[in-house]
Structure formats: C-alpha cells, structure tokens
C-alpha cells in the first residue's frame, strides 16, 4: 500500500464521516431552515473529500478531470438549489424555529404563520 492509497483512504473516510454527520444533522435539527445548514455540510466538504479521494484513485487520467468537473458543477449548483428552496419556503410563509419557541415548550414544526 503506497502513500497515495493511504491518502485516498483518509480523504474517503473523512468524506464518509461528514456525509453521515450531515445526515444525522438533517434528522436532528428542529425545523426546515436549520436542516438546510446541515445539508450544506454534505454539499460542500463531503463532496470535496470524496472527489479528492477518487481523483487519487484514478490518477492522472481524463477521469480525474471529469471528477473535477463534477465537483465544480456541484459547487455552483448546490447553493443555488438551497437558495431556491429557502426562498420558496419564505414565499410559502414557513415560520422559522427560534430559541424562544423552544423555551416556551412550543414545537412549531411545519407551522405556517
């Protein structure tokens, strides 16, 4: 096992951890707006680690360039999709969860103001 393989394994492992953590976040957080932040983790760094690890696996080939293209594309589209979702949720008058609601014992999950 040479050094590139080890580095690739480390990157893939980190990516896997970030992905699972992001998914846990999407399950744990109280409302839609906070969940968006959790999904942001998996969109950025998790993707980056996976693509990096795979690029080391493929080496200096055309496949690595394609992987880089995929990464660039996702880096541009993910915030756009998140923003479209957030704007739609605002337009749909979805009320954001706040600390004050939680203290008052209210769960306003999915409440529309």
């Amino acid at each position: 096992m040479d050094i590139l393989q080890i580095l690739s394994a480390v990157l893939l492992g980190l990516g896997a951890i970030l992905g699972v953590v992001g998914a846990i976040g999407i399950l744990r957080f109280p409302d839609f707006y906070t969940r968006m932040h959790a999904s942001g983790i998996t969109d950025t760094l998790c993707t980056g680690f996976f693509i990096g690890g795979l690029m080391l696996q493929f080496g200096m080939t055309l496949a690595s360039v394609k992987l880089l293209l995929i990464f660039m594309f996702m880096l541009f589209t993910c915030p756009t999709a998140t923003h479209a979702l957030a704007k739609a949720a605002r337009h749909g008058k979805l009320k954001p969860w706040t600390r004050a609601d939680a203290d008052a014992g209210l769960s306003n999950e999915g409440r529309v103001s």
Partner: peptide, 26 residues
C-alpha cells in the same frame, strides 16, 4: 456574495433585495 454565504454551512442567503441581503444564521 450570496452564493459564498450559502456555501459556508451555518449561513444561508434567503433574499437579495437592492443592497440588502437577508441571511438565515444558525
């Protein structure tokens, strides 16, 4: 600017209106 703010986890741009941007922060 809006995309950069959205790209960093913890902040999401909700709306850009004129020279004001509305951000949801965690």
């Amino acid at each position: 600017l809006g995309n950069s703010v959205t790209l960093t986890p913890g902040t999401v741009t909700l709306q850009v209106e004129g020279d004001m941007i509305e951000v949801h922060a965690l």
